[in-house]
Design a binder for these strands. Sequence first.
DNA 1: TCTGGGGTCCTAGGACCC
DNA 2: TCTGGGGTCCTAGGACCC
Length: 434
Amino acid sequence: MGAQAHRPPPRIALIDGNSFYCACERVLRPSLEGKPVIVLSNNDGCAIARTAEAKAMGIPMGAPWFSIRHLQARGLVAISANFALYGDMSDRMMRVIGQFSPAQEIYSIDECFLDLTGLPGTGREIGTRIRQRVLRWVGIPTCVGIGATKTLAKLANHLAKSLPRLQGVCDLSGLNHAGLLRAIRHVPVGDVWGVGRRLAPSLEASGIRTAADLARADRHELRRRYSIVLAKTARELCGEPAIGWEDAPSPKQQIMSTRSFGRPVRDLTELEQAVSLFTSRAAEKLRQQHSHASVVQVYIRTSRFRTGPWHADNAVVPLDRPTDHTSVLLKAALAGLRSVFRPGFDYAKAGVCLLDVRPAAAGPVQGELFGQDPEYMVRSSRAMAVVDQLNQRFGSRMIQVASALHEPDARWLMRQAHRSPSYTTQWGDVVKVG
DNA sequence: TCTGGGGTCCTAGGACCC
DNA sequence: TCTGGGGTCCTAGGACCC
């Protein structure tokens, strides 16, 4: 056998945290171990993470809190989401996993792909070491799926989660085609990455019921009847890479900040406060990725769930030039808000979306930009950077734009009745030892 | 009383141009 | 009666993801 024929087979791992948000809460409150725990979305609206014990109580993903709160009597513990904590735990977990391979793609807050191609050891050995190290160093239980493509790695991860005998690691990378089809022949097609709620019933109706069925399906037919995306998924299921690898997270092309209100809001002034806060948050994210935006979209809507007068509208406000200045974005957002606001409606939600986002032009501020004193703009940029730094250090409420100032009991603020302390991210909440 | 927030990609169709 | 065709750009909407 020639040396060039000995290229190692592709081996991609997908590692993710089990019930990640719940696991983060358990790290800080070990007394929650073994108990049914859920994490609630913003406004304590619905369950967005469940431990195995909570799933065993029959709580589905997305269950509205009001419909399951009676389970507290049976020991269910509900915790308001604390995304600062989860982001912090995610950073730690990703750093530990990244030690195992130079090629890591962070896919979401709780999962990443890792290229294991050519590394010494079997998939099971490497996967087991990753699980042990993350559990010991970060405290988060994980599962590891390994396959020749991203889609197969996701599928393997799904198997690792659902089959206890695999002990959290499933390696599909060594199988030949027949073995692969055998391994995935019981996986419902709806569990395949890229097949969602709309596609699954349609596929089932045409006889494609399992992952193996999809792998065997005619590619041209898939493309013709559905989409190129689904045809790619089918290729990936056969071990042919069709989805690329992204080492660095690409900058966002749109940036949103949006919230449902704690209680319905009728008052324009309160909407202005909310939209001001959302805009300054979005602007902060924009500056973090060193981008400018040239379109601001703002929307308001009444509740989807309540009967009564309904109103939803959005305004798209183009800017003269791309910018990352909160004050400029704010002016546009508030103008947009006033153009869509109608008195007499119980608004339940508002949002701000920055569009046409592109990298900030390199180099110093040009003299003619903004038609303003360039020195003023430079100083203003510096002030913006200082605000971002202070907010990062001392919590995001430290410095706010004046128009976002509000009463501590403003109606639009989120409900968070079950919040746990932010041990790792807020000075005031740091655990005191000794 | 009470139902999250933040993204991506693809496609179809219209406007416009030559 | 005949009344093109191809290309690009943009937008809205639908599907998916976590």
